[in-house]
Design a protein around this nucleic acid. Structure first.
Lengths: 295, 295
DNA sequence: GCATATTTGTGCGTATGTATT
DNA sequence: TAATACATACGCACAAATATG
């Protein structure tokens, strides 16, 4: 029944799908916005089971519906908070049954691109693509490979320093102001929110480094670390003496900010590397990242 | 009707799912085999729409089924090529209806953890968790943010060199042998497979660096680059004079291998950085990564 | 070609949860 | 607080497509 999606413009093809329980008068005309042609072929290839040229993986209808909605979200045609039409309307628009539509919903929901609530004023709402989802899948792969948390820390210590070093050479006054504000927030806040402020400083120095890809990757690693350290996975393995560690971190952050202010890329890079090494010290015997996907 | 899923071992509960009219006596106690307590709470939080402490997102039955199967795969209880039982059997085991089971299948299929074929001897087959899926989602986020391909190349040039530098200090004889073999393969092969061999050299130097997380992240970036450059996205923007570039790459790879053999970490790191910079040169005006998720 | 096993897609009914009155 | 309307969640049964032998 995939042709209804691919060929929604042609009423004759869709009519053929209808018969079985009473002939339907015809499908609603195609939403002109549907991507067609070569793109669909690429989509099939991307989703194939690995062997591209081997077998033609017939994309299931639900995948096509999900792909359509996904693209609308990624292209910005649907933005955060937008409500999708009710199931009945979408069923008619796409020309699919309720189960098929719901399969597509579950896929998009698992990608955190929509969230579906029931009840009055319920339905599907759109969310902006979030790096945390990519982190979940990366974490799944790492878990499968038996990667240790120390390995994740080590990776971060390799990834971030060059980016932060770049910041020292490029930083604007606005950058410095934001960094000072973030540092102050971590300094004055109570111990509980200090961790959050400290994490924000980490995110900020990477983000201001200017490379979006590194920002996303570093965010993934931070997310994995957060999930495995939030006391959920390691029953007792909380960071020792969090207050001391927090104070140490603030001191380290201050020193790094000074290096950034001075525009000393090498010093910044080295200081950041050392800071990250300290944070990851003594983790060698920790268990592997786990349950990042939940359940 | 999620209790049957949680209680698949108990035959009485599956019977209980049948009565969908009438008051339920209450929730059955949790099964011993499933992760409970804090982990379950984390799972709900992870899948929530972003606000963790705010609302309790009730996990849908299909999500629970998918999570259960996903964990079996990640924990290695189900391995590559394993065939899942037919729908009818799984329906009974989990105590769910066909549509619900199919929703779970679509989710796992979108994660490339299973592939479902129909017909005799069809059904769901298990696949090992692959970094490419994480790459798809990361690519989706990058596309949403309007990231350029040059940015991805730049990120790779920041990520890989420290890892490859580490290889120079740790390399074993086996490592060197594998690297020499990979280099030779790229040298003697025909232009077409030379690209593949060159890519394998790239993968190998990172993998032998010894950090699994970096290996996964670098694999993601390589996958994104491959997808955007395979002529699918850029109609004409193929790498200029691929033969020359290939020869240049082989030369660069040889020099880097020599530095690794010499155990010179700094030189290796710097050579690799320069090599990656060259590969990413002149991309500033290229469009953003696109259609990595298909459709 | 034909029988068989298995997924795919559909229609409809009931249950449940949520906001509004 | 209680009733009500709305919208999704889940279930069952049937027909069709597809791959194997």
């Amino acid at each position: 029944m995939a042709m209804a999606l691919l060929n929604a413009a042609d009423p004759t093809t869709t009519a053929a799908t209808g018969e079985r329980a009473g002939p339907r008068p015809g499908w609603p005309e195609a939403p002109a916005s549907l991507p067609r042609g070569p793109v669909a072929a690429l989509s099939a290839g991307v989703f194939a089971d690995g062997r591209i040229g081997q077998q033609v993986r017939v994309p299931k209808t639900a995948e096509l519906v999900a792909a359509h909605l996904r693209r609308q979200i990624v292209r910005g045609e649907l933005v955060e908070g937008d409500a999708l039409p009710p199931e009945a309307v979408l069923m008619e628009q796409f020309g699919v049954s309720r189960p098929t539509l719901r399969e597509a919903f579950r896929v998009l929901e698992s990608e955190a691109l929509i969230s579906v609530r029931r009840g009055a004023h319920g339905g599907a709402r759109v969310h902006t693509p979030n790096g945390d989802v990519a982190a979940r899948y990366a974490g799944l792969v790492l878990e499968y490979r038996g990667t240790t948390l120390a390995d994740v820390y080590e990776a971060r210590a390799m990834l971030e320093p060059p980016c932060v070093g770049l910041l020292a050479t490029r930083r604007t006054d606005t950058d410095l102001a934001r960094l000072r504000a973030a540092l102050a927030a971590a300094d004055t806040a109570d111990p509980d929110s200090a961790r959050g402020a400290s994490a924000q400083f980490h995110a900020l120095v990477v983000e201001l480094g200017g490379n979006q890809t590194v920002t996303v990757l570093a965010g993934m690693l931070r997310h994995i670390i957060d999930l495995t350290q939030d006391g959920q996975i390691f029953g007792e393995g909380q960071p020792p003496a969090s207050d001391d560690l927090g104070a140490d971190s603030v001191r380290a952050h201050r020193r790094i900010l000074e290096a950034i202010e001075a525009g000393d890329a090498l010093a910044t890079e080295e200081l950041w590397r050392r800071h990250l090494d300290e944070l990851g010290a003594g983790l060698d015997e920790q268990p592997t990242p786990r349950d990042l996907m939940g359940g």
